[in-house]
Amino acid sequence: MTQLVQALVLGLLIGGVYALMASGLTLIFGVMNIINVAHGALLILVAFITWKIWSLSGIDPILLSVVMTPLMFGFGWLLYKGVLSRISGSSPGMSVLLTFGIAITIEGVLNVTAGNRFRSATPSYFSQSFRVLGISLPKAQVFGCLAAVLVLGLLFVVLSKTWTGRAIRATAQNASGAALVGIQSAGVAALAFAIGTATTGVGGSILSVLYPFFPASHYDWISRLLGIIVLGGMGSLAGALVGALILGLAETLTATYVSLQWSTLIFYAVIMLVLLFRPQGLFGSRLRQDVMA
């Protein structure tokens, strides 16, 4: 029983972190209708920078997200303006190839500069745990999840309470309709991409503590996150949240009761099953497509 509760709590803690990471990906998809395959590589990039700063200065890695988030916001904005906006209007196939190219480039840069080996940031609380009612909660997981929930909350407030947020949601639902009521879609896309990338600033900082990583880890991460947003419904923020919690739970339960090496397959299996039975995901809706043009 304790083992089950332990697994469930751990699953929810991890799910919170996944939710944050997936929210950026699903936001970008919703607004721009492109799959940002580079999202995982950006996470690993942030994890590397965080790890480097931590190992040089000893500043807490999760705390470093306060710096990394605005940095990644700026980086995302530049990436959109400098690279992605150049192909807006061409086929979705091209945009996926472009973000794939960006992902490989980031991996290549990390390979050359940092070398192809595992890293992990290990602050003082790394191996400590809180003990609550006989359940042990690793401090790193708790801090990571708290940071993730905080940022997710902030994101929801921005999207639902501000004009900018409403503009982003409007564009996500109907780009041409949003343009008709005066929302500049290019500006919104840049903003959405920047915000989506900013979430990797927090996500990557947390990742550097919770998981060992090396340059090619980004494939693993992008697959997990794609699994989450396919389950939740591509483009849906609420869906990403629920999908992340479900997959976080499924992963820890498999790791606890089956074996660690099968737990990563859960994400791929979920992608297949969702596409087989509910291609639009849990929260995705099928909108009328014929009058878009």
């Binding site: 690279v83 794939f100 190219g101 992902a103 490989i104 480039t105 980031i106 290549g108 840069v109 390979n111």
Partner: peptide, 10 residues
């Protein structure tokens, strides 16, 4: 090599 291929793709 990876860096070259990635940049080339972009």
């Amino acid at each position: 090599r990876l860096l070259v291929l990635g940049l080339a793709l972009v």
